[in-house]
Design a protein around this nucleic acid. Structure first.
Lengths: 344, 344
DNA sequence: GTGAAAGCGCTAACAC
DNA sequence: GTGTTAGCGCTTTCAC
């Protein structure tokens, strides 16, 4: 099939290509009759508008760049799912880039997106990012930028995150109310605001309920199922008393559960557990895992809608950026039903 | 920041813009000295190549379209993860489109990708697609097309799938060898080759081991956790004897497990179970779920590499398309350890 | 209501 | 080794 342009349609109908262009774009000054003729001819010839040419000329690509650490993490793929759905409904396409949790690849990604002349960028930063670096380029070029979940708050860009502080607080408060007293928190060594916030929530909840803050009960490492196991081994071998664990995310919690089972420590009666993120497996494992839901789909949709507003508004960095914090949702399952044996 | 073009660099250095263009593209005929000067100036002025302009002129966008049902399904997000990683390493970007399992949205997606002048399309078809429809447009335009997992074999396009027949056979064979005799298969009503193949494998394995094929033991519905539960209720209420279940995918298997537990039927001694897909939760649930791994990351990488070959080769539809079938991997866990109580 | 013409920022063929 | 020139297929301003 030969590629057909508006010129071919123009020749076919013996009118000029500018009339064709206008007809195809539903320009008001074109008669209904002409429009119909043009559209019929376009269909007949198998015409497809060349978006590249129109982007070059108009300066708008109708593409937005989405930069995430990795689609292999369900949290991100779920948010991207939401973003693409909404963007798609509004006439935008999504150009995807994964940083693989490396700020270097992230910088390369921003460069690629910028070169591709995306109309905007939605991003969630890599775990090892130290400075705002290349992100500033986006702002300097006056291209809309928005963050979700992991944001750079120094930059004047809007963001949609969940309230991690509140999530940490809720999780800890739930354990306290369930009757647990020596609550361990497992967190990350690496420097990411969301994890710090969760820990801050943990600490404040303890304080609010008059429980002592014991630094021995805060364990730091690199999140993973195995790290969860290690933590349990570590605590028990050091004979540190504890009756509940709040982990920074669900996989670590799962490691904790597995190791406790190995050591025949009853969940939830001897040790209560709550994770964070509401991974799919939480409702399927035994005992089912209490957790904090992050409203991933809602986050994707919310950031996309926010972004569309920005695009319409035009002046992206004039006013203070909107920072939306979604409420985390406490999901209580079997793993934190309370130490009912404690009175024995 | 004003947008800077090769013309600005040319003025700055008092040379012509074509020299600048060549220098930036590392053209061999340009002196090392000039190249360095140009690159330094580009850096200094904050130049970014306008990919849109270069795509328009060269006819290559260096973007490939990826069309999948939904990123909310871990199988697809995992494959897309692999595709993007490889493409990215080879200088291509990924334009993402989700069909949401609707062939209408899929058609719209193909149109969008074609309009965006992607250099190729990698797709996995929607579950309700009946004809090859718009996919033919891609081929007619001589744009490389490749499928993964769910393909349209009528079209002359390469594909990477797993050998679903073999997977079905392996799963069934495993149950037989473990000692189960009355093996149920739960499959889909909707018409998708991959599910039919799994069933064909099931049937052939029974035959190969001299077990009778009982149509009562083949249940059809819409895959879901709830459907798994229903199947168990259905079988037990109709008092149909069975001692193992092979489900078309893991979530359905999970429903089966949950319902068997409710009815206090022991797994794996009274009933053995194997799923399909190796979802993340399989190793975390209790009992851990035997399943068939689909090599998702490998599939993504394989299809991407295959695709890059196509792009280099140039003549996309001249020869018979390569259809790569990856071997499924049997993963044996607790849920199918065999009916050791049967001898009691 | 339609036509004419310019130009978006590059690539690449042809000069010298 | 570098300059000249002609588009790629649209959008958009200015005519009439």
């Amino acid at each position: 099939m030969k590629k057909v342009t508006i010129l071919d349609i123009a020749k076919e109908l013996d009118i000029t290509f500018s009339t064709v262009a206008r007809a195809l774009n539903d320009h008001p000054a074109i008669s209904k009759n002409t429009k119909e003729l043009v559209k019929a001819a376009a269909e007949r010839l198998g015409y497809r508008k060349n978006k590249i040419a129109s982007s070059l000329r108009s300066g708008k690509s109708n593409i937005i760049g989405v930069l995430v650490p990795s689609l292999d993490v369900s949290f991100f793929s779920s948010v991207v799912h939401g973003i693409e759905s909404i963007m798609n409904q509004n006439g935008y396409s999504v150009l995807l880039y994964q940083s693989q949790e490396s700020y270097k690849k992230e910088d390369k990604g921003i460069e690629t997106l910028l070169n591709s002349r995306v109309d905007g960028v939605i991003a969630s930063i890599a775990i090892n990012r130290e400075d705002s670096g290349t992100y500033e380029d986006i702002i300097n070029r006056n291209i809309p930028l928005a963050f979700f979940d992991r944001s750079l708050d120094d930059l004047n860009a809007p963001s949609v995150t969940i309230d991690d502080y509140k999530g940490g607080y809720m999780a800890t408060e739930h354990l306290i109310k369930a009757g647990y007293k020596n609550i361990v928190h497992i967190t990350e060594t690496r420097n990411l605001a969301i994890f710090k916030e969760r820990m801050r929530g943990y600490k404040d909840a303890l304080k609010a309920y008059g429980l002592p803050l014991n630094e021995d009960l805060i364990l730091k490492g690199n999140l993973s199922l195995d790290f969860g196991k290690e933590c349990v081994k570590n605590l028990t071998s050091r004979k540190i008393p504890f009756d509940a664990i709040f982990t920074l995310e669900d996989f670590t919690a799962m490691g904790v559960i597995q190791q406790l089972k190995v050591q025949h420590i009853n969940i939830p009666h001897e040790v209560g557990i709550i994770g964070f993120a509401n991974e799919a497996f939480g409702s399927l494992v035994s005992p089912t895992l209490s957790t904090i839901d992050q409203q991933t789909n809602r986050m994707g949709e919310e950031i996309a809608l926010q972004f569309l507003k920005m695009l319409k508004a035009g002046d992206f960095y004039k006013s203070a950026p909107l920072r939306i914090k979604l409420d985390p949702i406490l999901i209580i399952r079997e793993s934190s039903q309370g130490p009912t044996w404690e009175n024995i």
